[in-house]
Simulated assay, not measured.
Amino acid sequence: MKYLVLFLFLSTGASAQQNLTIQVNEGTELMSVIQFLGGQLPTQLSPYKEDVKRYFVGHRNDPAVLMVFNFRFQVYYDLVECGLAFDNFPDIRAHHIPDSSFWVKYIGRDTLDRYLRLCMQFYKDTHFHDFFVAHKPMYDQWARGLRDSIAGPLRIFDSLINTRHDHHWLVCPDPMNGWGAHTIVAKRVNPAYQQYFIYQVGYQGDTDEKGRMVFGADIYDWAWHEGTHAFTDSILEQYKTAIDSLAYLMPTSPALGQQNVDTWQHYFNELLPRAVSAALHRQFRSDAAYRKVIRNETRNGFIHVTAVSDAIYDNFVHTRRVTTFEALLPYIFAALRSYKPAPAG
Rank of each mutant, 00 (worst) to 15 (best):
V5N: 11
Q194W: 06
C82N: 15
T207D: 02
R321Q: 11
L336S: 01
F302I: 06
A192T: 10
T241W: 01
V33P: 06
T126L: 01
N70A: 06
M250N: 11
T263D: 07
V57C: 11
A181I: 00
Y196V: 03
F89R: 01
A217K: 14
A14F: 13
G227E: 02
T319Y: 14
C172A: 14
I161C: 05
I97L: 01
R295Q: 13
F268G: 10
S15D: 12
R54C: 03
M120R: 12
I332T: 10
R114Y: 09
F197K: 13
Q17F: 10
T306Y: 07
D87K: 11
D158Y: 07
D125C: 03
Q265D: 15
A335F: 00
F284H: 12
R144S: 11
R114C: 05
S277M: 02
D148H: 10
D125I: 02
D218C: 01
L329Y: 07
P343S: 05
L249V: 02
R155N: 14
R155V: 09
K292A: 13
T21G: 06
L45Y: 12
L8K: 15
R117G: 12
Q35I: 01
P173W: 00
W224T: 04
V201R: 07
F102I: 06
A289K: 11
P42L: 02
N19K: 11
I312S: 04
N260T: 07
A151K: 12
A255F: 03
